[in-house]
């Protein structure tokens, strides 16, 4: 990956940072559109693996962004992607936190939260769809996704077990 491309990656993720209301995963569809479909820096399978690995490893799930950067451009890519996605939102968070510590009446925060909630949820659904849609040719994997939804909603089981079960199901289903 050239320096110009690293810069493009950094700037694009900078621009996504402030849109990631509800977590970086909500901008995953846009990341996919840019880094996979438009730039071709990494493949579909690498993109999905980045998300799966970050979710199965300990730590914040936002590290999937680090992995996307790493897959696209090694350590420099990982740094560019992580710094890009974290810097603007972290700065804003600190400023907003200090601001709200001084003020109690926040009608616009309520409107923002109420208004953005359905958009955030719509983005989560879109992300899940984009990840699952790669398996449309394989109904068994779609069944795994659907079963995961049911178990997550109906039980309090640690998702780690679901991810482990998913790995076994994947092996059982095969190529």
């Amino acid at each position: 990956m050239s320096v110009a491309e690293l810069l493009q990656l950094f700037v694009h993720f900078l621009s996504l940072s402030l849109l990631a209301v509800g977590g970086a995963i909500t901008v995953a569809p846009e990341m996919h559109r840019y880094v996979v479909a438009e730039q071709g820096w990494l493949g579909d399978d690498q993109f999905t693996a980045s998300i799966a690995l970050a979710q199965s490893a300990p730590g914040p799930n936002v590290l999937f962004v680090t992995l996307i950067g790493w897959n696209a451009g090694g350590w420099a890519g990982a740094l560019a992607a992580t710094a890009g996605i974290m810097l603007p939102s972290s700065t804003l968070s600190l400023l907003a936190f200090r601001w709200t510590q001084r003020r109690h009446q926040l009608p616009w925060v309520r409107a923002f939260r109420t208004g953005m909630a359905p958009i955030t949820i719509g983005l989560l659904l879109a992300t899940g769809w984009i990840l699952a849609a790669q398996n449309l040719a394989n109904p068994l994997l779609i069944a795994v996704s659907l079963a995961t939804i049911a178990v997550l909603v109906k039980t309090r089981i640690n998702p780690l077990w679901l991810i482990a079960a998913g790995a076994l199901c994947g092996i059982a289903i095969g190529g």
Binding site: A52, L125, V153, I163
Partner: peptide, 24 residues
């Protein structure tokens, strides 16, 4: 590769499941 595909399918389900929980 097969294990990761299975984990990816679970990840997709976890994300949609979280959305369902938020809606509920």
């Amino acid at each position: 590769a097969a294990a990761l595909r299975g984990m990816g399918a679970v990840s997709a389900g976890l994300i949609v499941g979280t959305a369902v929980k938020l809606i509920r």
